[in-house]
């Protein structure tokens, strides 16, 4: 991650930190707060490397100098990372003792020390109170970065002594870009993100076999709908219904259908970047010729109606059946 990418994903956070670093006006403690997958860890790394880098550029740290490499490998003696051990319910007492000791000592190599506490909400109240003393009276040249997903579990007294940097949930584009970097299957990425709007949830969904199946069945159903109503209806009973066997799954199915018509509409409006089923572009274009934007809107409202029925505990198969018949009418 460099500053440019950070300012794309977290504009406010990037702005605040960049200015503070440039003007050498960093506060003594920041609380990096926000949902998972929003780049808090990476931001802490970026800030630390920028501060210690031997040849920083405007874009960010060089990542090749000794300091940058040692920070990345956890070997820099003036950068103290504390994170709860895997599976541990809280940050251990020894870890806090180590942190306190490091607060009291001067740096090993430089006059600057950076403390990073990950999952800060996992400190015990005692630990938080002893930490308080140090962030109340910081020594010069120390910077504390607290990272948390659950700011409300921290003591108010801690929060009030830190500058809070709120990480906003990522945009769908940013999430899918990041998932793409992870090498997750492309056709599943966008529908998963559109459904969840959350990095971790979307990743989970992408790895589920059922989801891949659901997507291809929805596409199959829509294809059948283009051809003949009877074929589509048969498809519902034979394949679709057994797979979408509860209302929650049916909701996902409806949403996946909704995206198809939304894609058609996006295509009419020439907003290609919004398209969810990117890999189905040929079919979308083909259907666009015979399907006006008004029809797309109409189809979408039918699907939304169906969702409402589903929420009202109408039987899933019946809802789908009715929807398919009505959609057949919009053809």
């Amino acid at each position: 991650m460099d500053w440019q990418q950070l300012s794309k994903e977290q504009q406010t956070v990037a702005k605040v930190l960049r200015h503070a670093i440039d003007r050498k006006e960093l506060a003594h403690a920041y609380l990096l707060e926000g949902p998972a997958g929003t780049g808090k860890h990476e931001t802490a790394m970026l800030v630390t490397q920028t501060l210690f880098c031997e040849q920083p550029t405007d874009l960010g740290p060089c990542l090749t100098c000794r300091n940058c490499r040692r920070i990345a490998s956890g070997n820099h003696p003036d950068v103290i990372w504390v994170a709860p051990e895997e599976g541990a319910a809280s940050i251990k007492k020894e870890q806090i003792a180590y942190l306190m000791k490091e607060f009291a000592y001067r740096g090993v190599e430089s006059g600057r020390k950076v403390f990073i506490i990950e999952q800060a909400e996992k400190m015990t109240a005692q630990a938080e109170n002893s930490l308080l003393k140090f962030i109340e009276e910081p020594h010069s040249g120390t910077l504390a970065l607290l990272i948390t997903e659950q700011i409300h579990q921290l003591l108010d007294t801690i929060i009030s002594r830190c500058q809070v940097l709120a990480f906003v949930p990522l945009s769908d584009h940013a999430i899918s870009r990041r998932m793409d970097e992870q090498g997750l299957p492309k056709p599943l990425l966008k529908p998963a993100v559109a459904l969840t709007h959350d990095y971790e949830e979307a990743v989970r969904l992408c790895k589920e076999e059922w989801f891949a199946e659901a997507r291809s069945q929805v596409l199959q159903l829509l294809k059948g709908l283009c051809e003949s109503l009877e074929a589509a209806q048969l498809y519902i009973y034979e394949k679709f219904a057994p797979n979408f066997d509860d209302n929650q799954k049916m909701t996902v199915g409806l949403d996946l259908m909704l995206y198809w018509y939304r894609d058609l509409l996006s295509l009419h409006l020439n907003r290609r970047e919004e398209i969810v089923y990117e890999d189905q572009m040929d079919r979308l274009k083909e259907q666009m010729l015979s399907f006006s934007s008004n029809q797309a809107v109409q189809a979408m409202s039918l699907i939304l109606d169906a969702r409402k029925q589903l929420d009202a505990h109408v039987n899933g198969v019946s809802v789908m059946e009715r929807l398919v018949i009505r959609l057949g009418g919009t053809r």
Partner: peptide
């Protein structure tokens, strides 16, 4: 030095970090 103190005797060097404050 600013951050550490060094004790040098024969062929052994002992460095200690200093306390802040």
């Amino acid at each position: 030095t600013t951050n550490q103190i060094l004790f040098k005797s024969n062929n052994v060097q002992f460095y200690s970090r200093l306390l802040d404050g």
